[in-house]
């Protein structure tokens, strides 16, 4: 039923989704919802393309994409954590800004070929193993050492964490920065490692899918690779399913990642599973103290 070429394509398409969702897991675990991820991804895509066309260097492209994403992440951190702006509004604003900057900086590069890019080809198995390793590492950091405990405490109960001497604001800003960096990197990988081309609008919608992956993975880095693979596979299926032996209309299939996410979100909240899989308690809630230091 499912052919190997579809699985490979799913891994390739899922990689950028995984990178972005791993970053966002950290952000959300600290209690910050970054809807700007979508714009960060799109901006990262544009920045990596422009940088690589100019410099001919893929690594530079990825780094700059990460930095651009990090800057947007930092802005989200400052506005929503330090200034206590509403996280949703700030995130959406950043998405729009990301779209805008991407189309502006990329305008003069449309149609230019990439001088070099990351070619996976038959090495997809290596890619898959390294993805799993990174996901495991990030899970270990988040759940097995003190750093992770601090991040999670800030997202669960910031007031108690503050009482225990944790710098809530700093922690949240840093995880948002980290999430932004990975989000930008993901956009860069999308262009340099997967699609190998850029035009206005490249990458749009992937950030939202990454947000969905964060939810269905129950904010757990270990589950993210599975859902990245599935959601990446759905993306690839839009093309693959038009050919034999499948031959059926793929457009309704495109709704499944979102529908699954909605269902899983409800299951997490409405069943006894809630005890194990639920959003961080303080997700989206600004940390509030009358007098404090940023």
């Amino acid at each position: 039923m499912i052919s190997l070429d579809l699985i490979i394509r799913a891994i390739l398409a899922g990689t950028p989704l995984l990178i972005a969702s791993l970053g966002e897991i950290y952000t959300e675990r600290s209690g910050v919802l970054n809807l700007g991820l979508e714009g960060i991804f799109v901006l990262g895509a544009a920045v990596s393309f422009v940088t690589t066309v100019d410099s001919g260097n893929v690594i530079l492209g990825l780094i700059f994409a990460g930095i651009a994403g990090g800057i947007l992440g930092l802005i989200h951190g400052i506005v929503s954590v330090s200034f206590r702006g509403r996280q949703v509004v700030s995130g959406l604003a950043l998405t729009i800004v990301g779209y805008g900057i991407a189309s502006l900086i990329g305008a003069k590069y449309v149609g230019k070929p990439l001088p070099t890019y990351i070619y996976i080809g038959d090495k997809w198995i290596i890619l898959l193993i390294s993805e799993l390793a990174i996901a495991f590492l990030l899970w270990y950091l988040l759940f097995k050492i003190k750093l992770g405990a601090i991040i999670r405490s800030v997202g669960e109960d910031p007031i108690s964490a503050y009482g225990l001497g944790v710098d809530v604001v700093k922690t949240r800003i840093l995880t948002t920065l980290f999430g932004g960096f990975l989000g930008g990197l993901a956009g860069g990988w999308y262009v340099l490692g997967y699609i190998h081309i850029w035009t206005e609008g490249t990458g749009m919608g992937r950030g939202w899918i990454a947000l969905a992956i964060v939810i269905v993975s129950a904010w757990n880095p270990l589950l993210a690779p599975i859902f990245s693979l599935i959601f990446g596979g759905v993306e690839a299926a839009i093309w693959r399913f038009q050919l034999p032996p499948y031959n059926f209309n793929p457009y309704l299939l495109g709704a499944t990642p979102y529908l699954t996410t909605l269902l899983i979100l409800v299951i997490f909240m409405a069943t006894p599973l809630k005890k194990y899989f639920r959003p961080p308690k303080a997700l989206g809630i600004p940390f509030y103290r009358e007098e404090r230091t940023i």
């Binding site: 699609i195 035009t199 490249t202 690839a236 093309w239 050919l243």
Partner: peptide, 20 residues
């Protein structure tokens, strides 16, 4: 064998379709 991408201008989609 035909793959329809649903847009006149979509270099990214064209590339994915070609690869598929």
């Amino acid at each position: 064998y035909v793959i329809r991408i649903g847009a006149w201008y979509a270099p990214d989609k064209a590339r994915e379709a070609a690869a598929t």
